[in-house]
Design a protein around this nucleic acid. Structure first.
Lengths: 337, 337
DNA sequence: GTGAAAGCGCTAACAA
DNA sequence: TTGTTAGCGCTTTCAC
């Protein structure tokens, strides 16, 4: 079944295609009656404008690329939701790619998106500097980039949406201390993620403030998976670190660690309380539910979408760095009842 | 920075655009030397073909729509991965929409995708019949549909990829019985999902076969969320149903129920063993890990992609119903150690 | 207020 | 082997 075009309508109404077009785009210079007739016919025949024609005409594809490190947790899908809220009503399509925490894949995804002729790319990095040249290259080719959550280390000329990692990490540690914990382990994120340093910084600051800091309490997770969290907990026990609580870089690490502790008959929160950063629904799916710092993911997506729109409209638009406020959600994993 | 076109290359090389085009598409009728020159220039100037122009020319958008009920669990993202494996190398873009288990939203998504001019739609339903007319309409308008996992109830003229729900449910119940369980509760999925009936059917068949069937053991979950699972478990205790194990329609239900039981100090698997259908990574993120029937999600996506390609190529292609084999993964939630 | 024509980038039939 | 031309669907000058 052939798609109905403006030409079909014109032929049917004995009008020129330009008049039909004018009616459809609500041009001023058209007789109201004519417009009405066209609109009626369009409705009747189920006319749909062909996006490809517009893309060609205006040189804009109305495609936005999204690059995320993983889609196993609901983190990215929440952000996606926010992006869609803004972009779908404006007729943009969103093309999602997953890097699998692998900079090499991320690179391929970026090139794929360029191939797809996207008008801009919203990205959550898997590595703070591995693909800097690609990012730079894309920017130079006029494809705007917006970073969110995990941002690049250098001062790349692009807008960012993030939370204040140090501040919120500090708040979490304050919370643990307020519940009487003293030996707080930090499961630090991997070195190749900028936020690792910042969250660790927030942790260290508060620990020092209370005279609780002990480098032996900081343990670096090799990656960001459940398994990495699990292994970190294993190491903790093997090294016989004395600890009463745990603050993990991320949900997945916390849950991985928690499951290992549970297996070892260590009760949570009775024996060890557990908390994390970057909480998602995942935190409420497990037992006990996980105390976590929760960034406003949907708003993060909406903000990123708005920033990319601004850059698409005017490539010279300011490269804002937007900080959103995260929320500290206290749940059973840090709360004896 | 302006995008470089075929025209720019032609001008630079003092050739016609058609010659350049021929070189780029590997046409036979071209001097090898000329081709080499063109390819070299294309590489040098970073030429990228404009997809929009091709879309316009051939009337194909190279966009495929994906409609999924939720993206909180990794289910959909696994299927997506499979779809991408097939479709990205062929230059297709994939546009993802989430229905949020709401037929109304699903309908909007479908219309949005039509608006976006997709060449086909791959869909996992949230309701077995609510949007039948829309599906029918899309098919009539020449937009092929492929269903996967949760399929429509009527005999819609479209390919499907699924697993044998009854068979695998039966296998799971057999497993529970083999571990000595007799009072096996089934957390049945909601009525508006076709698979609910089929999985329940598999359950009932085996229960009857062993003379264990008791209608009081079947409890219908109002929906598919964690909370629905939780509430179902609550009801179970309130009604003082005597049970030693539980087979849930889906991961989310099982986990919701499990968490409630754990809160009530009911140990898993010691007091009650728990299992589910449609397992995802989620099953391994929790403690204890969940025994589940795991459909080959990535292959499901790949298969769906292949089916939609066949339909795009030839709208009259056979409407195959493909059954994939799922795997019964036995984990700690049904295994005393 | 309406129509004719050009053009966005690319390909393919037709000429040469 | 290469060039010319038309056309995909739409918008937008420029005439009238």
């Amino acid at each position: 079944m052939k798609r109905i075009t403006i030409k079909d309508l014109a032929r049917h109404l004995l009008l020129s295609t330009s008049t039909v077009s004018r009616a459809l785009v609500n041009d001023q210079h058209i007789h109201p009656e004519t417009r009405a007739k066209v609109l009626e016919a369009a409705r009747k025949f189920g006319y749909k404008r062909n996006p490809a024609a517009l893309n060609l005409k205006y040189g804009l594809s109305k495609n936005i690329g999204l690059v995320v490190p993983e889609m196993v947790t609901p983190f990215s899908s929440k952000v996606l939701r926010g992006i869609q809220n803004i972009l779908y009503p404006l007729g943009y399509r969103i093309i999602i790619t997953e890097s699998d925490e692998d900079p090499h894949r991320e690179r391929e995804n970026l090139l794929l998106l360029e191939e797809f002729n996207v008008d801009g790319i919203i990205i959550n990095l898997c590595d703070k500097k591995q693909n800097q040249e690609v990012h730079q290259q894309l920017l130079e080719r006029g494809i705007p980039l917006v970073f969110f959550d995990r941002i690049p280390s250098g001062a790349l000329e692009a807008p960012q949406v993030r939370v204040d990692d140090a501040k919120h990490a500090a708040a979490m540690v304050e919370h643990l201390i307020a519940t009487g914990k003293k030996r707080i382990v930090h499961l630090k994120g991997p070195d190749n993620v900028l936020n690792s340093e910042e969250r660790a910084g927030g942790y260290i600051g508060v620990m020092k403030k209370y005279g609780l800091y002990d480098p032996g309490l900081v343990i670096e997770a090799g990656g960001l998976s459940f398994d990495d969290g699990r292994k970190a907990a294993e190491l903790l026990l093997k090294k016989a670190v004395d600890f009463d609580s745990l603050f993990a870089f991320t949900d997945t690490l916390a849950i991985g660690a928690m499951n290992f502790l549970l297996e070892k008959q260590i009760l949570i929160p009775r024996d060890v309380s557990v908390s994390s950063f970057s909480g998602t629904e995942l935190a409420t799916m497990i037992y006990p539910q996980l105390t976590s710092v929760e960034p406003p993911l949907m708003r993060m997506g909406e903000m990123a979408a708005n920033l990319i729109l601004a850059k698409i409209e005017d490539i010279g638009a300011e490269n804002k760095v937007v900080f959103l406020d995260a929320e500290l959600k206290v749940r059973s994993s840090t709360q004896d009842k």
